[in-house]
Amino acid sequence: MLPNTVDYYRASSVSDALNVLKANPDAKILAGGHSLIPAMKLRLNSPSMVIDIANLSDLNYIKEEGGNIRIGAMTTHGQIAHSSLLAEKLPLFTETADVIGDVQVRNMGTIGGSIAHADPSADWPAALLAADASIVVTNGDETRSIPATDFFVGFFSTALEEGEIITEIQVPVPATGTKMTYQKFMQPASRFAIVGCAAMAKVENGVVADVKVAFTGVSDGPFRDGNVEAAISGKTTTAENIASAAAQAASDVNLNADHYADEDYRQHLARVYAKRALSAVCG
């Protein structure tokens, strides 16, 4: 299908985009466009205007600064997947980027666009939660940094307020020796996550420390799974400990259901993938 009539505006800067957005409350920000344009084509969404920010080069970077990894919002999944800095310092991000959509989507889709969209089955939110990322947003007058745990508030919804856009994702550089992984069970048609589990942990003297486990796809929004984290923290890395911690996964969330996975099966998968993720980071 074809989109409804829409005005296209190419923003020259973040402040330009924000000004135009203010003047056109019905407008949508266009990043890579890989969530918005398909919806526009099916006419599920017909904004009066799109404001293209994909080419703002000052939003496209990956760097390390002051103990943080900083990723510009318009950095593509592909750039992240191929970043040698991230491969070394934050392999969770290269691993996650590498399983988003397909190569064409990764070449166009941006991390900022994806997290602003907050699809409950998207891959980034789990990784951002497990990595303790913060999302930097601005409305032109004010810039604030929102921890990922506060940013993702539910089903396709975020803490972004009207007139704000995402400019950067910040992640504290994980301590040396931290292991991390993203494990995904794919819906075979859409290739979105039925269950995606991101985990980070450090094993010190055979005991699990600093463990973070986050899920996507499981519920109406991504979440950190405190039950799993608590159950494995401070424990030795035996298969039994990992299995019993994983068995706590997705215990007190609203479970998603669709043709491919009903509530029971999805919860079961969350536990299988928690086990696989913990096994990978606690080894």
């Binding site: 089955s121 919804s157 109406d220 998603n256 043709h259």
Partner: peptide
């Protein structure tokens, strides 16, 4: 219509969200 045809992946989320 299109809602029925394209929505399966997210319908349970829609229901939960509307309820909340």
């Amino acid at each position: 219509g299109l809602l029925a045809r394209t929505g399966n992946r997210v319908m349970s989320g829609v229901a939960n969200t509307l309820t909340k």
